[in-house]
Write a protein that binds this DNA or RNA. Structure first.
Lengths: 109, 109
DNA sequence: GCGACACTTTACCATATGGTTAAATATAAA
DNA sequence: TTTATATTTAACCATATGGTAAAGTGTCGC
């Protein structure tokens, strides 16, 4: 019941649209981190970070593990796949378009 | 002055988080379209579509060309690159992580 | 010129988002 | 048991977002 690769493009892209959350993801890509560790670089209250983590978790990008009073968050590696694939697909088409632009009629900007 | 690849990750991801806008992008990847053509598949007012197009344009993903009373929108092919690259970078790291998970300590879920 | 057409702009509205502070919960330490 | 630490939850607030209807703008066709 791993809820693997559900078509949650909305959630994934929405999550990634916030710089704080992208930064958290970047931190987590170096390994699991406690909430304090994650919060440290930001000039922001702990509840704010907690909320971001909840959003990230709901979108399936991270998960957590409780150890004593600490809570370690870590990345769920395949969670971004659907979004990645969506963009890849577009990118292919767009590359073709780029050729059309160079040779073609649309020279706007 | 092409405003090429400014670090507008926020805007790009934000734009992509809306299914209507993703759908518009998918349509446009088949070629330029007028506003009516773009609006046709949606059960939504024209102003709503117009707004979405504006958002897409502001984020730099599309541009338009006026022809008579029609307005043709088209994709700006390299506009998604920064976002694409960001995800690619993550994906590489995550793939490594996946290996760590299989062999490793985090078996959560 | 005038009405139809294509589209945008302008209010306007409900809900979502991202932040805050203060209180609650849970575990560790003294 | 009391206190400190780690984190979440709750209540609140301002602003952003995605939609609407109605009016405005510009172009075409009669």
């Amino acid at each position: 019941m791993v809820k693997c690769r559900k078509n949650n493009l909305n959630d994934v892209f929405s999550v990634l649209s916030d710089p704080t959350r992208r930064s958290i993801i970047e931190q987590l890509s170096k390994g699991e981190r406690s909430v304090q560790e994650l919060a440290q670089p930001f000039d922001m209250s702990l509840p704010a970070i907690s909320k971001h983590l909840k959003v990230l978790e709901k979108a399936g990008l991270v998960s957590q593990r409780k150890e004593g009073r600490y809570r370690y968050y870590f990345i769920k590696p395949d969670s971004m796949d659907s979004a990645c694939e969506w963009m890849e697909g577009l990118k292919q088409v767009w590359t073709k378009l780029e050729g059309m632009f160079s040779g073609g009629k649309n020279k706007s900007q």
